[in-house]
Design a binder for these strands. Structure first.
Length: 644
DNA sequence: CTAGGGTTAG
């Protein structure tokens, strides 16, 4: 504690004295809110007409306290504000010290920038930063960190370059912040440049810098580079391991992710809560139920069974893998249900088309926690999946009115979906036009999809035009419009689009489906003939096709887009990856077993029809999880009601 | 002098 000797006569400086008393109290209590507000309230009590700021200012003028001591007071006050993220007392202190002429005092100003940066007052932080005459590396780091967390991320990178320009040498704090900004932007080129600077400054083996590099490469889909960095770090801590485990998970390599987790434990490190959450979400992303189950057991063995975050990750995992009931059981066991847990369960129901259950749960949730913007994504998508038009519109309005949530692109996407499904295409288009956020591919994609359902050619053309601007290389968009043309008999349009795709060198991504049988993943590409049981699979498909035709199935051809002859088209459809996976599943599981197939693209129209037949003929429940939803086929019917 | 990395939800 700093000792102050204040020679004051009580008569002159009651106020001043009390302010310092409260500052001293603050030092004892470490509570800037209390001390600061105590001081202000006392000041105002004693002289209601005085502006408290002026009071303190005039007091300090008449006092004989040395300047550096006053500065040291405000320094410690600010330090405490930073620790408690108390921005409004900080602003008052800022005003005070500016009036005293210490506004750009290197230590105080730095602390202010730090405080503003930590409290989402980036504007204030940057403004002050620009006016401070002597800027040290710490100051730069603090500001870069603020932009790396809150964006705009470009500014963080710009600041990094400016820092280099003026000849400062970045340190082990600068790099993680700058790299985080690259991660957020998936800016691989900037990331690699900074990596070179890291190597030049010999920070590559630092755990903080290393973890940031791994994360940056992971977010830019460069897992191999991430692993190279990981291998160079000699003394890895849990976070470095977690970063690498997450890197695999984020890039669809769940097995590697789980394997690495095992390796970590073998080295004697204890997995943390984050390790479990990461590795569980990795298996969730590929709907790998056996791995997920194993990790459930694993969580028990490592005494994470009561951990709320881990359990929420498990709820999410079971819901996504199709075991909604198991998910619900775990959900009910949660000691503390936070927004995330509710969200996981609600979106779980929504994804599977259990709209009523999702909405029931939302009603319960409202009484316990405050729903957030993601809750509403779940609620609205439940409505659109269930065709609950009026409810959807009601929730959208209520979200804005009662919960003061600004609609995001995702909310608009749900609404476009909802309007589109009910045939209100022009209204959907109007909604996009009046959005206050920039429409993304998802919104236009929802419109395009609705146009497909209702055969609306004009709007589909508009939607594709917008989609081409946003993601010129995504083949899926072209294919949908081409199918709309084909269905309308507009072969000229089909040909025009095909030419466009060839001219621009756009290729359809390769379709892949996978299925788990006896704890092993079997993946199939479209037209795949490489599986050891290939003959058996094709024989099964041939048999199925015969039975399907008897039941009234007519192979469609419009989903096949490439230039093949007509009879060959029908052939290609029946060996789409999802059908190969289903045939394999039928052969290798006992009668009546449910099948879960995951596909990397959207399920095609013809396969959708075919699988409905297959589910009836074979008396199996078949679930296909495609890129954006689940289809539960049972007894010739799909849960999506043929709307997707 | 001060600060920092990984994780759950379409």
């Amino acid at each position: 504690m700093v000792m102050i000797h204040v020679k004051t006569k009580p008569k002159r400086s009651n106020l001043f004295h009390s302010s310092f008393t409260s500052l001293l109290n603050y030092q004892k209590n470490k509570n800037p809110f209390l001390s600061h507000y105590n001081y202000h309230s006392q000041a105002i009590q004693q002289n209601p007409n005085t502006d408290p700021r002026n009071t303190l200012l005039s007091s300090s003028k008449v006092s004989n306290i040395p300047t550096h001591q006053i500065q040291s007071y405000y320094g410690s006050l600010l330090q405490s504000c930073i620790a408690q993220k108390a921005v409004s007392p900080g602003k008052q202190i800022h005003a005070l010290i500016s009036q005293m002429g210490f506004g750009f005092h290197p230590v105080l100003a730095t602390k202010l920038v730090h405080l503003y940066s930590a409290c989402d007052c980036l504007h204030n932080a940057h403004q002050l930063f620009d006016r401070i005459p002597q800027r040290n590396l710490f100051l730069w780091n603090v500001l870069i960190r603020a932009y790396a967390w809150n964006g705009p991320y470009e500014v963080a990178i710009e600041l990094y370059y400016r820092l280099l320009e003026i000849g400062l040498v970045p340190d082990n704090f600068t790099f993680p912040f700058a790299l985080k900004a690259c991660s957020a932007l998936s800016a691989i080129e900037e990331g690699r440049r900074i990596h070179e600077d890291v190597i030049r400054n010999k920070w590559e083996t630092d755990v903080f810098v290393g973890a940031a590099l791994i994360d940056m490469y992971a977010k830019c889909s460069c897992v191999v580079n991430a692993r190279q960095v990981f291998d160079k770090i000699l003394e890895r801590d849990v976070v470095v391991w977690n970063s690498m485990i997450a890197a695999y998970g984020q890039n669809g390599q769940a097995d590697e992710s789980i394997e690495l987790c095992r390796e970590m434990i073998l080295t004697g490190l204890k997995p943390s809560e984050a390790t479990l959450v990461t590795v569980i979400s990795a298996s969730t992303d590929i709907a790998a139920l056996p791995q997920g189950r194993e990790l459930h057991g694993f969580s028990w063995r490592h005494r994470f069974e009561l951990n709320v975050k881990v359990k929420t990750a498990l709820v999410d995992m079971y819901a996504k893998c199709g075991l909604v009931k198991v998910a619900r059981n775990l959900f009910e066991q949660l000691g503390e249900k936070r927004v995330v847990s509710w969200n996981a369960m609600i979106t779980g129901y929504a994804m599977h088309g259990h709209s009523t259950k999702a909405l029931d749960l939302f009603e319960k949730m409202k009484d316990e926690v405050q729903p957030d913007h993601i809750t509403f994504v779940g609620v609205l998508s439940a409505c659109s999946r269930g065709g609950l038009f009026d409810e959807g519109r009601m929730f959208f309005e209520s979200m804005v009115r009662d919960y003061h949530i600004d609609p995001s692109v995702q909310h608009y996407t749900c609404m476009v979906d909802l309007l589109g499904h009910s045939g209100r295409l022009d209204e959907a288009c109007d909604l996009i036009m009046q959005m206050r956020v920039k429409p993304d591919p998802g919104v236009w994609g929802a419109l395009l999809n609705s146009c497909k359902l209702h055969g609306h050619v004009k709007l589909a053309e508009l939607a594709l035009e917008k989609l081409i601007e946003l993601e010129p290389h995504d083949a899926g968009n072209y294919v949908i419009l081409s199918n709309i043309y084909a269905r309308a008999g507009n072969w000229e349009g089909v040909a025009k689009l095909r030419k466009l795709m060839i001219d621009r060198g756009i290729k359809k991504s390769i379709a892949c489906s996978w299925i788990e049988v006896k704890n092993k993943v079997h993946a199939f590409l479209s037209g795949d003939a490489s599986h050891p049981n290939c003959d058996e699979i094709y024989a099964k498909l041939k048999w199925l096709e015969g039975r399907m035709k008897e039941a009234g199935y007519v192979p469609g051809t419009e989903s096949v887009f490439h230039d093949v002859e007509n009879d060959e088209k029908a052939n290609m459809i029946c060996c789409h990856s999802e059908r190969l996976a289903i045939a394999f599943g039928l052969i290798n599981t006992p009668d009546g077993t449910k099948l879960l197939i995951t596909k990397n693209l959207k399920i095609c129209d013809d396969c959708h029809i075919a699988i409905k037949f297959i589910s009836k003929i074979t008396e199996r429940e078949i679930t296909v999880r495609d890129v954006n939803r689940y289809h539960h086929f049972k007894d010739g019917i799909c849960s999506c009601g043929d709307y997707w």
